[in-house]
Write a protein that binds this DNA or RNA. Structure first.
Lengths: 202, 202
DNA sequence: TTGCCTAACTAACGTTCGTTAGGTAAGTTC
DNA sequence: GAACTTACCTAACGAACGTTAGTTAGGCAA
């Protein structure tokens, strides 16, 4: 057995290795395009051994997605706690955007996989993840509702639409933002927040 | 053979039937999850016969994606011709947004498949589609540049960022907008245009 | 010491996959 | 009417797939 694999095997539990390599591969290559043998090889075990930890490939995917959404959700809470009610509207929005993008680009493959793989996941898997996902969307919805109640965003705003449009825009950054480039994630977040806050009108 | 299949076979050429059913299935179930046998069955031919019209499954996907982007692009041109330089900035932006959403929801499965499948397509296929895709993005870029030159959007706007964020938001509507619901596509387009134009600030 | 649990292994199952080979019937061209 | 092309067909190939069965080595408890 290769030394690298041996080293890795001793670092973390097999279950964790399976999960993180699965998230990695699902993200890079897609779910159907990744075989359980690929995942097992990356984790340094045999394909069959994977079934000791997970009942099926679908269940493994569901767990990857749940962990990703959960991590994103926790990041939102932490950021919201740091910049809470004493902040003004623009600040709170920016903080939330920062936390979402930070989750996507700075918290490993789980969060990004949960965004990019969820839309193409089998329906059974989606059903397993939807409750966790709804919890996260509720946080955004409550943020917008609170801003609206305090008249810190324009009255009459369709906040459900605004939330969906904003999250769609944020998630799409996965397709084009280069995290190794010059622009930092925080800078990106601020620019997007500014775009949404002030709009395009002169 | 079933009558329905016979009827369908006489309507259009086999190549067209293969393409449109492939787009449909790729969109609903994903690329890897759709087999060439599924496509062939939907088109009313044998799986092997598909290879008379296309060299490989990948090439079929590439053609589906190209057709989708091309249709979206043509829609943009038509809309831009109808509401050209004599319109003011907000109008032109709204028209472009309308044409993009109309392509996604009202022009068959090609356009929507080209948006939702492209990100998870094999790299070889992406390479085949990128030129067509770049052409379309250029149209948006030129629109923004023109608006900026005419000072019809705020000076200092990062128009590349604005374009990416806006297109990301528009494409994400595929994941949540219900085209059979109460709200019309045009109404959705106007609301999104308004959100981007005026921003969230009070 | 015996017996159980954990976490892995090897081997294989049946199915499905994309693709190819080779044939055939119906038109089209010379 | 012979040669060629078009548009399909049936049959099958080898590879890869998710999954299961059965086994084994090590650790811990009684």
């Amino acid at each position: 057995m290769a030394t690298a694999a041996l080293d890795e095997k001793t670092k973390t539990s097999a279950r964790e290795r399976i999960l993180s390599h699965a998230a990695d591969l699902f993200l890079i290559r897609g779910y159907a395009e990744t075989s359980v043998r690929d995942i097992a090889r990356a984790a340094g075990i045999q394909a069959a051994s994977l079934y000791y930890h997970f009942d099926s490939k679908d269940e493994l995917l569901a767990e990857v997605l749940r962990l990703g959404v959960k991590a994103t959700s926790d990041g939102f809470d932490a950021s919201n706690a740091a910049c809470d009610r004493e902040c003004e509207g623009q600040e709170r929005l920016r903080a939330a955007i920062r936390s979402h993008l930070s989750a996507l680009f700075e918290h490993g493959p789980f969060t990004s996989a949960s965004v990019s793989i969820f839309p193409v996941a089998p329906d059974d898997v989606k059903d397993l993840v939807v409750p966790t996902r709804d919890e996260y969307e509720d946080r955004w919805q409550r943020l917008f509702q609170d801003l609206l109640d305090r008249k810190e965003i324009r009255s009459g705003t369709d906040i459900s639409l605004a939330r969906l449009v904003l999250l769609g825009a944020l998630n799409s950054t996965l397709e084009w933002f280069d995290v190794t480039g010059e622009r930092s994630v925080n800078d990106l977040a601020d620019s997007i927040a500014d775009t949404f806050w002030r709009g395009l009108q002169p």
